[in-house]
Every structure is written in structure tokens, then in C-alpha cells.
Design a protein around this nucleic acid. Structure first.
Length: 107
DNA sequence: ACTATGACTCCCA
DNA sequence: GTGGGAGCCATAG
């Protein structure tokens, strides 16, 4: 398990986010093993061409859509398609998962 | 090994 | 609500 880089664990964490829901960079970082590495987590998603994970479901702690390699507008559009209400670049708190784990998908 | 980078977050004016 | 500054961290060069 230790051989897996932080990036790999971030990838796995993001995959746990169910459709129609979003998680904060912090939640992802925490699930990846470092609660304080939210910045690094976002950095990883940005630099890596991860199309194998729903990276658009990761937002900022305040609900802001945040950034996206292809433009935040695209990110917001993708979220809307999943039925997530967005008002002025912000996701409603009810869609946000502040605690991400294998149980998150169950809800 | 060191420096720079950035899709973050917190705190205060 | 907005904006600037500092702290934090993994990864790339």
C-alpha cells in the first residue's frame, strides 16, 4: 500500500464519489492519507490527464466549483448534468460530501 | 537535493 | 462579499 503514490490514492478517493454528489479537495486529501494535502491533491488532478476518474466532482471547501483544466465552466456544466444545482459557481451544501470513504457511496 | 508550481484552505481587514 | 497574505504539500523540473 505504501508503494502507491499520493496521486494514486487521490485517484482512488475521487472514484468513490457517487454520481450526483461532490467532495471537497480536503475530503479527498484526507481519504488519500493527508488531511492537509488538499493543495497537493488538486495539483495532482490538474497535472494528470485523469479521465479515468470523475475529477469534476471535486470542489472547494466553500462549495465553489474551483478550477478545471478545461475551464471551470465545463466543470460546472458536467456537474449540472449530474443533477447538481449550481448557483453562481457554487454547489449547494447538500450535495457536498465533507467526509469521503467507502461508506459515502452507500448513504 | 533544492526550487518552483498550483484545480487548496484559513484568517483577517 | 471581496481580496490579500501566509501556511501546507506532493510533484515536476
Amino acid at each position: 500500500m505504501e508503494g502507491r503514490s499520493f496521486a494514486k490514492r487521490v485517484c482512488d478517493a475521487v472514484k468513490l464519489i457517487p454520481e450526483g454528489k461532490v467532495a471537497t479537495y480536503r475530503a479527498v486529501a484526507r481519504c488519500a492519507g493527508n488531511p492537509r494535502a488538499a493543495r497537493a491533491a488538486g495539483n495532482t488532478l490538474h497535472r494528470n490527464p485523469f479521465r479515468t476518474v470523475p475529477c469534476h466532482r471535486v470542489v472547494r471547501s466553500d462549495g465553489s466549483v474551483g478550477g478545471f483544466a478545461r475551464g471551470s465552466g465545463v466543470k460546472a456544466a458536467l456537474l449540472k448534468e449530474e443533477g447538481i444545482a449550481i448557483h453562481r459557481k457554487k454547489v449547494a451544501p447538500e450535495y457536498i460530501l465533507y467526509h469521503l470513504d467507502a461508506h459515502a457511496a452507500s448513504h
